[in-house]
Design a protein around this nucleic acid. Structure first.
Length: 796
RNA sequence: GCCGAGAUGGCGGAAUGGCAGACGCACAGGGCUUAAAACCCUGAGAUGGCCUAAAAACCUUCGUGUGGGUUCGAGUCCCACUCUCGGCACCA
């Protein structure tokens, strides 16, 4: 055999073509065969193309899925494109191209880049969210949500990005800025479609416990959902029939309430209700409320900012526990969109109320002992009528009952603002009719396709560019057959990605979202891999839609993604984020051309723990390329007879690599294979059977080279359809081992002992060692700790 | 402020309570070579000592963010801190 370097270019080309030709990675439902559905978060095909950070997760799922296949699972490992939405559209605007043309070009680029890495995707299942046959079902889900009362029209002010010229959901914000472009958002009142994700808040929270997900992702979702347990209490307004309902998590402090605060959005402050309560300075109050309500939450001031507010002159509220009257304020530190839009203020035991009371000179009354004011801890109640002297936590429920309130649970999660005033998205399938109101497009008329337009630039007026196309907008009402106008807003970027994992199970099905047969076989996704930045966006939306689809019997599982791994970033060599802006982007094409796809794959898996952010290192990839070459050269050392001394290392490698892949600990799997190759080189020869087993273990990581070496061994078919080797437990346990001898916990020598040597034998052997005898001196061991095969410690 | 994850050589990192630093990078010395690259071999946590012309070898002590504790034995378990990264944040 020639002493050639590994000709990676030819080998990659040869096997990539052969896998394609033989449909090596085609997946199908096979009755009775165990399945594994392994999924990457599918990419937005941006114009930038892939940099070396993108494939890290794809390599991991590739290794994982190849291992699963070799273990006898039917594997589904698909790929597709999330091509609607702002990134694609903004790219198209910038490059003066139609979004569709840009998307097609970008997909071609992405696909060719991915192809070079030798992934085992079943490309026959490729999907694209902008394909009408796909978004047919995105629209179908919307109609079902509408049918079930979970989609509704709202005129509430929403967050508006003046740069992207569209409304945004809460999840699309980064603080007070548009998550996409960083522009601060404004409040804007627009007719909007909103999805009632809040109806699912509790289930989204509780079912997190059933998921095998990283703790930080689950915690991010718990924070986002923000469940609070407390109580709702009514404060009657003196001299009227009105009352102010407040939500509080601290009903135990009810006896310390010295005023009540309404949010600027509170209904009692609106002009329409002005006669309900006797606000003497209504004009002033109303003006303050209108101004404050028009500001975004961030503009209204974060924690620490000086509080503002106006007293409602002539209005007093009655504390339901003490029957005392307290003044009422409007202040922008109270949010209209949370709780009841009104709070009871307890300045002695709440920092915000304390700051407000100090500024406005309001009274402060302590009802819990301990600490300086404001005291937010727990303690013994005082000045709390019959509850005085009791622990505040113990009597919380009793105080609620005493005050005639009721227990209540509130969430921070907001409903999903679902309309976008942009062109490049799924049209929302409803028709507005003067006579019938809002009418859903009949299911049989789906999909409502996106029309071709001259100008798809956003108008900025709050109208979608679609509104300018009269021929498309003007239609007939499905109900009364009179004139109707189409909804011109489109769906957000997250719509198509909220259910795509279902489409992969049954792509191209025009008759249903997914067939029951396919869904029953493949669901749920067994392993889902992607970036942690989706924790409170995509991952929460997809869970919401999935639970809804479960409720209407489209899917059979409560959760879409049973297990999740979040991929750590690959930083540039300079430690910064890889970005065109910094000029530090590394293109995988260049790396593959120089070092080969297998070395690239191995390197990204070897860099460090999968979830860690790690800087790219060109010299380190040279190391894995060296490893590839050493394996390649090992083919010259293959002998007919197995080398007994390699057996232990081999079987350890089979065991560890398999377990590490399963646990997503690829870095230690790679290092174990290096350990084995080191041992084989030292041995000078490797038996043919041992070589076969080792190639199989390496195959998920280095699919091209291993298939080539497999063929050179004279094997038929692809190594990737061979079965994973079994390890022999008997070979793992060494018959004898070097046992460390310690005296008082300090290493003094070692003794080679049989694995089953008795303590007496071990002690005798230990005593024979000079250094041990010296350390012992005349002393007799008071105690001997013996762990067979590991250690013997003599305590004197 | 609340919540989560983490801190180990020059670097990435490894280690079911049992020889800390596997594996790799970078580095140093040597081999091969006319030379270089490639490749191969060897070395290396720190400090002090011993022997030395110098080194190797050998020995001592220290050593996994800090301070305590449990244990025959702690990177690993417990308590209290410091710092870094991430999520939430005027959510009552």
């Amino acid at each position: 055999m020639a002493k050639e370097a590994f000709p990676h270019k030819e080998v990659e080309k040869k096997w990539q073509e052969r896998w394609m030709r033989d449909e090596t990675y085609r997946s199908q439902e096979v009755e009775g065969k165990p399945k594994k559905y392994v999924l990457d978060m599918f990419p937005y095909p941006s114009g930038e193309g892939l940099h070396v950070g993108h494939p890290k997760g794809y390599i991991a799922t590739d290794v994982f899925s190849r291992h699963a296949r070799m273990q006898g699972h039917e594997v589904l490992h698909p790929m597709g494109w999330d091509a609607f939405g702002l990134p694609a559209e903004n790219y198209a605007l910038k490059h003066k191209a139609h979004p569709r043309a840009a998307v097609e070009k970008n997909i071609a680029t992405f696909k060719s880049q991915l192809a070079r890495l030798g992934f085992d995707y079943d490309w026959s299942r490729e999907i694209n969210t902008t394909d009408p046959a796909y978004y047919h079902w995105t629209q179908w889900i919307f109609l079902k949500l509408l049918e079930q009362g979970l989609a509704f029209e709202s005129e509430e002010p929403i967050n508006w990005c003046p740069s992207c010229k569209t409304g945004l959901a809460n999840e699309d914000l980064d603080g007070n800025a548009c998550e996409r472009c960083g522009t601060p958002v404004e409040k804007k009142r627009l007719p909007q479609w909103v999805l009632k994700i809040t109806e699912y808040a509790d289930r989204l929270l509780v079912d997190l416990d059933t998921l095998n997900w990283p703790e930080h992702i689950k915690e991010a979702q718990r924070n986002w959902i923000g469940r609070s347990e407390g109580a709702e209490l009514d404060f009657a307004i003196t001299g009227t029939d009105e009352k102010i309902a407040v939500f509080t998590t601290r009903p135990d402090t009810l006896f310390g309430v010295t005023y009540v605060v309404l949010a600027p959005e509170h209904p009692l402050l609106q002009s329409a209700y002005r006669n309900l309560i006797p606000i003497k300075n209504f004009k002033e109050v109303h003006a303050y409320a209108v101004t404050a309500a028009g500001k975004t939450e961030i503009e209204r001031g974060a924690e620490g900012k000086e509080k503002t507010g106006v007293k409602l002159e002539g209005v007093m509220a009655v504390n339901p526990a003490t029957k005392e009257e307290v003044p009422v304020f409007v202040a922008d530190y109270v949010l209209g969109s949370y709780g009841t839009g009104a709070v009871m203020a307890v300045p002695a035991h709440d920092e915000r109320d304390y700051a407000f009371a100090k500024k406005f000179g309001l009274s402060i009354s302590r009802v819990i002992e301990g600490g300086n004011l404001p005291f937010t801890g727990d303690g013994v109640l005082v000045d709390s009528s019959e509850f005085s002297g009791k622990g505040n936590r113990e009597v919380m429920g009793d105080i609620v009952a005493y005050a005639g309130g009721k227990k209540a649970v509130r969430y921070k999660l907001r409903d999903w603002v679902f309309s976008r005033q942009r062109y490049w998205g799924e049209p929302i399938p409803v028709i507005h009719c003067e006579k019938c109101g809002t009418v859903p497009v009949p299911y049989e008329d789906l999909p409502v396709t996106l029309p071709e337009v001259e100008s798809y630039e956003p108008t900025g007026t709050g109208e979608s560019p679609l509104a300018a196309i009269d021929s498309w907008v003007n239609t007939t009402c499905p109900k009364c057959k009179g004139p109707g106008k189409r909804e011109t807003n489109t769906m957000p970027q997250w719509a198509g990605s909220s259910w795509y994992y279902l489409r992969f199970m049954d792509p191209g099905n025009d008759g249903a979202l997914v067939s029951t047969k396919a869904e029953k076989y493949w669901a749920p996704v067994d392993m889902y891999v992607g970036g942690a930045e989706h924790a409170t966006r995509h991952l929460i939306y997809a869970r919401f839609w999935h639970k809804f689809l479960y409720d209407i019997s489209v899917v059979s599982t409560l959760e879409p993604f049973a297990r999740l791994a979040s991929v750590g970033l690959i930083l540039a060599e300079d430690g910064r984020k890889m970005s065109k802006r910094f000029g530090n982007v590394i293109n995988p094409d260049d790396v593959v051309a120089e070092y080969g796809a297998d070395a690239f794959r191995l390197y990204e898996m070897f860099m460090g723990p999968f979830e860690n952010a790690t800087a790219w290192s060109t010299s380190s990839i040279a190391g894995t390329a060296r490893f590839i070459e050493r394996v390649w050269r090992l083919q010259e050392k293959v002998a007919d007879e197995s080398r007994a001394r390699l057996d232990k290392a081999l079987h350890e490698t089979i065991k560890k690599v398999g377990e590490d892949i399963e646990a997503f600990k690829f870095n230690t799997a790679v290092s174990q294979m290096m350990v084995f190759v080191n041992a084989a080189e030292k041995e000078g020869e490797i038996g043919k059977e041992q070589w076969r087993s080792f190639l199989k273990v390496l195959a998920p990581f280095a699919p091209h080279m291993t298939d080539e070496l497999w063929e050179r061994l004279g094997e038929d078919g692809s190594i990737h359809q061979a079965s994973w080797p079994a390890y022999e437990p008997a070979l793992l346990a060494a018959s004898e081992a070097a046992v460390v001898v310690q005296v008082n916990g300090k290493r003094r020598g070692e003794a080679v002992l049989a694995a089953d040597a008795s303590e007496a034998d071990a002690l005798a052997a230990a005593r024979k060692i000079d250094t041990v005898a010296t350390a012992l001196g005349d002393a007799e061991p008071k105690r001997v700790v013996y762990v067979p095969g590991k250690i013997i410690n003599l305590v004197v």
